[in-house]
């Protein structure tokens, strides 16, 4: 007899996950998928409409921009920039935030006081303002964008995870682990981290969506990646000038950001529903 009932996987998780996977594939295999090099200019063929609009041609499926660059290729390469930033920056923010969250939540006392006050100071900056301030100081470049996102968004992880750690810290099994003489490091890594991991993974997925937006914002105001690196935000800024004549050039990169952020959000929410034992238990009955 089969005891375990087969359960359909969470719908948001599946849809979000496959869309994220799709964008990721576009990013990783950009040179093989993209029909043109993203910076190749065809000056005789500028601001071409996409194939479904009047005057579109199959040579440039999504049309071209004001310098005659192929929009589809630039979007595919833009996925590469967006996903690089999303993955590295979110992971960095997670590591930094989780580190301080575990310190603060586990040790409490003055360690907690200092870390909590630091987070408070950080949160008094609107995130957009802080990241732009940092870029003014750091200069532009993918690595600078990543650093800025890590330095701004670690507080998101720290704030939420700290209370999770505090809950886990109060559990009997943690007290027991201390009693039998485990070191602090071992207790945190082996006893507390597994308890906070579901929340950590969920936050990571949501943060990736946020990172995509921040990268787009910074590229949009020309404070992100250098101009020879294709990025969605930069495409939007370029296309804004010609939006009366070529609205698709503006709409397509917006759609790319929207779909990517939406799929990260769906994926994150799906993860939360699937990984949270309380939620999963409710659903099972």
């Amino acid at each position: 007899m089969m005891r375990k009932k087969f359960r359909l996987p969470d719908l948001g998780l599946v849809i979000g996950g496959s869309l994220v996977g799709l964008v990721l594939i576009c990013g990783v295999f950009a040179p093989w998928i993209a029909p043109y090099h993203p910076n190749d200019q065809e000056l005789l063929y500028i601001l071409a409409p996409p194939v479904w609009a009047d005057g579109g041609s199959a040579a440039h499926l999504f049309g071209t921009d004001s310098l005659g660059r192929d929009t589809l290729s630039r979007m595919i390469y833009g996925a590469r920039t967006a996903m690089t930033v999303a993955a590295v920056a979110s992971l960095g923010a997670m590591l930094l935030g989780a580190f301080f969250a575990h310190l603060a939540g586990y040790f409490g006392g003055w360690v907690d006081w200092i870390i909590s006050r630091t987070v408070e100071v950080w949160l008094s900056f609107p995130p957009v303002v802080l990241s732009m301030l940092l870029i003014t100081g750091l200069g532009i470049g993918i690595d600078k964008v990543i650093l800025a996102i890590v330095l701004v968004d670690w507080t998101r992880f720290c704030r939420v995870l700290r209370s999770e750690v505090q809950v886990a810290r109060g559990q009997d099994y943690v007290a027991f682990a201390r009693l039998i003489g485990f070191s602090h490091l071992r207790v945190i890594m082996k006893e507390i981290l597994p308890a906070t991991l579901p929340m950590l993974i969920t936050l990571l997925s949501l943060q990736m969506g946020i990172s995509v937006v921040v990268e787009a914002i910074l590229s949009f105001v020309a404070m992100g990646v250098p101009s020879d690196v294709p990025a969605w935000g930069q495409m939007i800024a370029d296309a804004r000038i010609d939006m009366y004549g070529a609205p698709w050039g503006l709409a397509l990169p917006i759609a790319a950001i929207f779909v990517t952020v939406l799929s990260f959000n769906l994926f994150g929410d799906g993860l939360r529903r699937t990984l949270d034992p309380r939620h999963a238990a409710n659903r099972g009955t």
Binding site: A216, I217, M243, L250, I254, I257, F258, V261, N265
Partner: peptide, 15 residues
């Protein structure tokens, strides 16, 4: 709608 940050909404509205 949550996946549309303010600056994208602004551009969409303009468009």
């Amino acid at each position: 709608v949550m996946a549309l940050p303010d600056f994208l909404l602004a551009l969409l509205f303009i468009l």
